[in-house]
Amino acid sequence: MKRLILAEMVVLFRRPTARAMLAVSAGLAFVVVFVLGGLQGSSVQFNGKPIPEIMSFSGPDAGLWALQLRHFFVMPLFLLTLAGQSVAGERSSHLMREQLVRPVSRHQMLLAKLISLWLFSVVALAVGGLVSVGLASPWLGVEGPWSQWMAGFGLSVLTDLGVLALGFVLSSFFRSTAGVVIAGLMVLGVDWGARLGLSALGFLGIKSAVGLNEFMLGTGLNLWSSVGPDWRWSSLVALGLWVAAMLSVARFRLNRLDVP
């Protein structure tokens, strides 16, 4: 299994989409640091107050903003694309066939692809984290919410796993990378809408809506941002359940699919 994962990592590091993901991870972090650096000394006002008074500026703050930007649309898009390319794309382009004519079970193949993609997402996360905190700390200062950033950074690893699991399960239903990406974004969009609706119902006093909201896919995927006083273990449990369910369905379907 170790050799399979390493071989899949070699493929990933050469894949143009994966290289773009690394570049964008670093690029987003650069943008955040330079925007924060610009705002720190600016006289721009928001609601009548200068921005430096309502925002804090430091290395970990930049790291948190970089994480925020990372998880908003850009990285889910890359992760869904890579999952789609690795499974649905390789199946339709006959690359999966070339792997399965070897004495490897589909389960092993799926696991090797998932673990390599997950490790790659950790590398991309680390690149973004190092660039944002490494550049911002000497410039904006080191006093800041380090524990919050580290927890968010660590939990982002689980969020990425959740997005990859979504990509894998969709790859067992769709034949193209585009199909996986579009369906993935639709699932996330519908989930967001449903959570908004449940929140509204919760605001109106319907308690079961609040409970249900905690177990939605998006709540689990937002785990990384829920560190602090709002932390709920139920979000972690929800993400774990969603990942287990999605990967089980992906495995079940891929074991039965014809490989062209």
């Binding site: 050799r3 399979l4 050469r14 894949r15 070339e98 004519v101 070897r102 490897v104 193949m109």
Partner: peptide, 26 residues
């Protein structure tokens, strides 16, 4: 085995494509 037109990762070298297959074949 070689089934129909063989498929390869276009962005890898011939050697790396065979390396992937060797890994899958242990």
């Amino acid at each position: 085995a070689m089934v129909e037109t063989p498929a390869f990762h276009e962005f890898l070298s011939g050697r790396d494509n065979l390396g992937l297959s060797a890994a899958y074949g242990q």
